[in-house]
Design a binder for these strands. Structure first.
Lengths: 167, 167
DNA sequence: CTATTTTGATATGATGGATAACAATTATCG
DNA sequence: CGATAATTGTTATCCATCATATCAAAATAG
């Protein structure tokens, strides 16, 4: 497993030595049968496509997931949101700064606990998130349904969730 | 989507303000239905488990994939192996240095083309790879089959490969 | 032969993820 | 109550991964 998001060159020119039947495509062999390899490659493809679909809104998968979580769970603090998404608290600070600078969300000091911030979406944040959802549904997820079919797509998500939670 | 490999804290203590029915688990909501999120979480879990299973041999998924590819395709050069795995040539250099320092593989100057190196596994490399395969099969992939069942596991790999190649 | 391309390599920058430490605040409990 | 411990957001910092530009040596093209 390795896999990164490099442009595929696909079938380069032959080696110019007229030697003989050298060359040929490289065989993945057992790698193709191990889960980790296709899993990582698929993940990179999906994130790549997500980025492209979301280009007009300039939202990364991570940022999108934060906005989604704030919409569904308004008023939570940074620790709660961050740990839910598997983000370490220190790394969440800069991310929130960015979203707050873009006026997509806001930190509101809690009155009960003056250490923590209630996180909320701004109106602009709600609007951007609404557009983001539409883009994802229309461009990103739609393409997936086209490729796999709705039933397979659902089964795929179910298995991945199973692995993520129970493995 | 965000997701990292942080320890889950699971159901923290209640907020001490006797206020009322505040608190409760954070809801993922739509995030759980989008492919990207469970895909990334599953990928992290799988790589994490791979690392643990491979701890005695100190091989990362990337290193393992390189060794596998060298076994199946001996004598290829760095560019071929790197691009097949989606590794950029500059980044592959240090990686190969590491494997070569551990005497798992070797760079052999080509006589046809004195710019390039034929990459080959050393005997030690072959032995380590053999042990690695056994570890992965016995610990890693076996656990997957247990969780999903062989048929589902195969279907999962097929769908991921489909996404990786055709999306 | 000259110009271009390819290969491995170096340097370097960007990004993501991880840990330690800190001040402010709150909770614990003797 | 008051001392101690724990929590929250934050900063600084480190490490790994990924990406780009550039280079010398060698090979190829015209």
């Amino acid at each position: 497993m390795t896999v990164s998001r490099t442009a595929g060159d696909g079938a380069k020119a032959q080696r110019a030595t007229g030697k003989a039947g050298e060359n040929s495509a490289i065989e993945l062999g057992e790698l193709a049968e191990m889960l980790g390899y296709p899993l990582k490659r698929a993940q990179l493809k999906i994130f790549d496509d997500f980025l492209r679909c979301m280009a007009p809104l300039q939202l990364t998968p991570a940022q999108f997931s934060v906005l989604l979580l704030l919409e569904r769970n308004p008023g939570r603090n940074q620790t709660e949101i961050a740990t839910t998404l598997g983000i370490l608290r220190p790394n969440f600070v800069a991310m929130l700064d960015s979203l707050e600078n873009r006026e997509l969300c806001a930190r509101v000091r809690s009155v009960n606990d003056r250490r923590s911030h209630h996180l909320v979406l701004t109106d602009k944040g709600k609007a951007v998130l609404a557009r983001a959802k539409k883009l994802v549904a229309a461009k990103h997820e739609a393409r997936l349904n086209e490729l796999l079919g709705p039933a397979n797509r659902a089964a795929l998500v179910a298995m991945l969730t199973r692995i993520a939670e129970e493995f």
